[in-house]
């Protein structure tokens, strides 16, 4: 049960330079915001954008550094998105590189789906990107893909 036989390969990916406006346009008709891989020109995986990434826009520079210090306490509070300072032009000024999550959990395509499932459980992720040996993006696997695989095997689907 390799990951490559059970992943989604029909992908929408973005680059570091994709603007916030382009990103929002791209997914405005989706039910919810998906996990979006960020790649470079050679399709090497650099990070991901997920719904939490948008909150980065409202945080001060180096905020992630302070998160490493448990005594900065206040930094753990959730952002109050109803009272944020959004200026005109931010849609063009903010790019994916500013908000993407590089604390990346990924899986190689030749691994077993059990490993992919364990990783998703370990990191509370619903989906993670799949790469080949050269770290190039080849797909995305989600908890739903794993569930489907099991249901198919049991003859439910």
């Amino acid at each position: 049960m390799q990951v490559k036989n059970n992943m989604q390969t029909n992908l929408i990916s973005v680059t570091r330079g994709t603007t916030l406006s382009q990103l929002l346009d791209l997914f405005s008709s989706f039910h919810s915001f998906p996990v979006v891989p960020v790649v470079d020109d050679d399709n090497i995986l650099l990070g991901i954008v997920h719904i939490q990434s948008f909150f980065e826009i409202f945080k001060p520079h180096h905020h992630d550094l302070l998160m490493r210090n448990p005594l900065s306490m206040i930094s753990r509070e959730p952002t109050n998105i109803f009272d944020v300072d959004i200026e005109e032009g931010m849609g063009l000024l903010v790019i994916v590189a500013d908000i993407m999550d590089t604390k990346m959990v990924k899986v190689e395509q030749d691994e077993d789906i059990k490993k992919a499932y364990d990783l998703m459980q370990l990191h509370n992720r619903e989906a993670i990107p799949v790469v080949d040996k050269d770290k190039k993006l080849v797909g995305i696997i989600s908890v739903f893909d794993v569930v489907m695989k099991i249901f198919k095997e049991k003859g439910l689907v």
Partner: peptide, 10 residues
Amino acid sequence: TDILMGVVAI
């Protein structure tokens, strides 16, 4: 502000 945040973080 950016430099100050870095300083107090480290």
